[in-house]
C-alpha cells in the first residue's frame, strides 16, 4: 500500500494514501476528540464538530475526519483556535445532556467523559444554560435500553444499522432541538424492525444505548 509521510504534533508519521487525518493520528496514538466519525464510512458526516485541527498553510482550523492526508502536511492538534472550537462543541453537547454519571451504566467508558477530560472542560460546565429534553426512556427492546436524553446525535448507531447490517431500523427524525434518533413513527424500538443484534449499542459512545 502506498503511503505518505506527514507530521502531526511534531511526530513524523506514515499514513496510507487517501487516509483521513483523524485516523492517521489515532493509529499513531495521537488522540483527537471525535464522536460521529467511523473508519468504514467513506463520506464522513462531520456533524459532531469536535475533531478540529490546525494545518500549516490553512488559515482556519479544519475537521480532521474530512481532511485527506498529504505528503509533507504539518498538523497541529493542540492549536488554540482548534481547541476553542472543540471546547465550545463539547460544552454545547453537555448543555443539553443530563450528565448523570453517578448512576449511568456507561460511566468510565463514556466518550463524553474522555473528551471533556482531554479538552479540560468540566462535565458540569456552566458556560451555556442547561436545557434538557426530558424524553421518555425506551426499554422496549429485550436486549438494551435507549435513553434519548443522553444521546448526542452522533449517528453512529444509525450508520452501523444500515451500512453493516442493511436493516435501517434507526434514523433521525424531527427538527432542531426536537431532533432525535428514533424509529419509523417514533415506535418503541422493541416494536420496530430492530433485529436485536446489539451492534448499535456497541457503537454508542455515550450512555444513550446500554445493554440491559
Amino acid at each position: 500500500m502506498k503511503t505518505v509521510s506527514l507530521t502531526i504534533d511534531g511526530k513524523e508519521i506514515k499514513a496510507p494514501v487517501g487516509e483521513k487525518v483523524l485516523w492517521a493520528a489515532l493509529d499513531n496514538d495521537i488522540y483527537i476528540p471525535h464522536l460521529c466519525a467511523r473508519h468504514d464510512n467513506s463520506a464522513p458526516d462531520a456533524s459532531c464538530r469536535l475533531c478540529w485541527v490546525e494545518i500549516e498553510g490553512k488559515s482556519r482550523p479544519v475537521t480532521a475526519c474530512t481532511e485527506t492526508v498529504e505528503a509533507g502536511m504539518v498538523v497541529n492538534t493542540k492549536g488554540q483556535a482548534a481547541l476553542r472550537l472543540a471546547r465550545t462543541a463539547i460544552e454545547l453537547l453537555l448543555a443539553s445532556n443530563e450528565v448523570d454519571c453517578a448512576s449511568c451504566a456507561k460511566s468510565g467508558a463514556c466518550e463524553l467523559q474522555k473528551i471533556a477530560a482531554h479538552l479540560k472542560v468540566k462535565l458540569k460546565t456552566r458556560r451555556f444554560k442547561k436545557i434538557l429534553r426530558h424524553l421518555p426512556v425506551d426499554s422496549s427492546s429485550p436486549l438494551f435500553t435507549y435513553d434519548p436524553n443522553k444521546c448526542v446525535l452522533c449517528g453512529q448507531c444509525i450508520q452501523v444499522c444500515r451500512q453493516r447490517l442493511g436493516i435501517g431500523a434507526l434514523g433521525f427524525a424531527h427538527r432542531g432541538f426536537n431532533r432525535r434518533m428514533t424509529t419509523f413513527g417514533d415506535q418503541p424500538i422493541g416494536q420496530s424492525e430492530c433485529q436485536n443484534c446489539g451492534d448499535c449499542v456497541a457503537a454508542c459512545p455515550t450512555g444513550a444505548l446500554c445493554f440491559k
Binding site: 444500515r162 436493516i167 435501517g168 431500523a169 434507526l170 434514523g171 433521525f172 427524525a173 424531527h174 427538527r175 428514533t182 424509529t183 419509523f184 413513527g185 424492525e193
Partner: peptide, 25 residues
C-alpha cells in the same frame, strides 16, 4: 398517513425511517 409513508419507502427502496425523518423535518 403511515401507510402512505410505508408505501413510498417501499417504492424508493429506502429505510422507512428516512421517509419519516423527512416528513417530520
Amino acid at each position: 398517513p403511515r401507510e402512505a409513508m410505508l408505501e413510498v419507502a417501499r417504492f424508493l427502496d429506502i429505510p422507512e425511517i428516512d421517509v419519516y425523518g423527512v416528513v417530520t423535518f
